[in-house]
Design a protein around this nucleic acid. Sequence first.
DNA 1: TTTCACCTTTACGTAAACGTCAACATTGGA
DNA 2: TCCAATGTTGACGTTTACGTAAAGGTGAAA
Lengths: 135, 135
Amino acid sequence: MITIKTYSISELSKEFGVTTRTIRFYEQQGLINPGRNGQTRIYSEKDRVRLMLTLRGKRLGFSLAETKELFDLYDSTLEGDEKQLKLILGILDAKRQELEQQLQDIIKVRQELDSVTDRCQKALEVVVNKKQKSA
Amino acid sequence: MITIKTYSISELSKEFGVTTRTIRFYEQQGLINPGRNGQTRIYSEKDRVRLMLTLRGKRLGFSLAETKELFDLYDSTLEGDEKQLKLILGILDAKRQELEQQLQDIIKVRQELDSVTDRCQKALEVVVNKKQKSA
DNA sequence: TTTCACCTTTACGTAAACGTCAACATTGGA
DNA sequence: TCCAATGTTGACGTTTACGTAAAGGTGAAA
């Protein structure tokens, strides 16, 4: 007998630190597609992964619509015709470029943070020195 | 005579591809602080840089409030006392961790994009092969 | 059996980040 | 002189991503 691991909404909510409202909202937006036991939602591993991916996208500033688009693309790769597949490849490439831009942004912001930290530490030294002298 | 480079709102709007409404909104939120010539706003290089940084932050999913916080931190490093400076250093560290998380996210999403691309290209090959055989 | 904890739907509320008028000032050219 | 471009301040509208009740079903434990 094969048993497939499933999750309740509160399990997922705890694991990822989001409210159940959020999870239901993502379903409403077509990002996840849990099964049902009567009225109650049952989440599969696939749902869990998609939730994870959705949250990861969010951290990168992806809108839910963008993430859904990627999910739909993923699903459609199995049945697309030539034209469709080439279109998908194009979109994927655009996303990759977006990510590259973000990577560059991160590097720059990191530099800026470092520079402010430096400046801050020097200001701190000055203050501490003054305190020592006055003591 | 020293001349300092200034910019009009439309110049900046064109350079960065945002509407003038957006620039005025950022001012209202305290992110930039242009001078005035009568009623008309005059933007300095500092304003231009801050606009650039704000937009960069946006691409990384920073809220305007967060970016403003960083600007305020930057400004306050020049006059902070010890306690204040240590607090700032703490906040900077938190931001750095956030950036690290984002970097990890980007790497993972990039992998996922690559994997979908792969899958897509293989599906494309299958389609193209079929076409050749039928020809 | 009642009291939880946990689940559900429906629906209105809200904060952020602008868009989109409206109505008006000012300024450099034809 | 007048007009088009560019600027200004409100102020209301819109989208996204949920928050927050309200009102109720369900199963297990006490």
